[in-house]
Design a protein around this nucleic acid. Structure first.
Length: 109
DNA sequence: CCGTTGACGCCAT
DNA sequence: TATGGCGCCAACG
């Protein structure tokens, strides 16, 4: 509540459908802060304790699971994605374009 | 108030 | 095509 940017990040991440993934940069752009992709990652790090925020559905622009070390187990992120039907190999989402979810494209606000 | 940190991304080699 | 360097910006101490 005190930090609108963080809260906005959480709200958008909550909207990512099961079986789809988005990227830090895409979320930043949607929030009107195109150059704040790193801050999005920072926000998700602080939110890793929040169960209702599917942080595992956010990867970098190449589909790499760059935030996997911040989960309870280094492989928890990959396992969560695979459980949703998203193919992951070598810490990278395969066929990213097929599962990519861009808020600026999907959301009409 | 200022320097550091970091789950990023673009641009120049 | 593949790395590496650098800018960006919100939060923190």
């Amino acid at each position: 509540m005190d930090y609108p940017f963080f809260e906005n990040v959480y709200e958008v991440v909550k909207l990512i459908p099961r079986g789809r993934v988005s990227s830090y940069g895409a979320i930043a752009r949607y929030l009107g802060a195109a150059k704040s992709a790193r801050a999005v990652g920072y926000a998700l790090n602080k939110a890793s304790i929040m169960p209702d925020v599917p942080a595992h559905r956010v990867v970098n622009r190449n589909g790499l699971l760059t935030g996997r070390h911040h989960f309870s187990h280094p492989d928890a992120m990959e396992q969560a994605l695979v459980a949703e039907g998203i193919p992951v190999r070598e810490n990278q989402v395969q066929d990213l374009g097929k599962y990519y979810w861009d808020p600026t494209q999907e959301l009409t606000i």
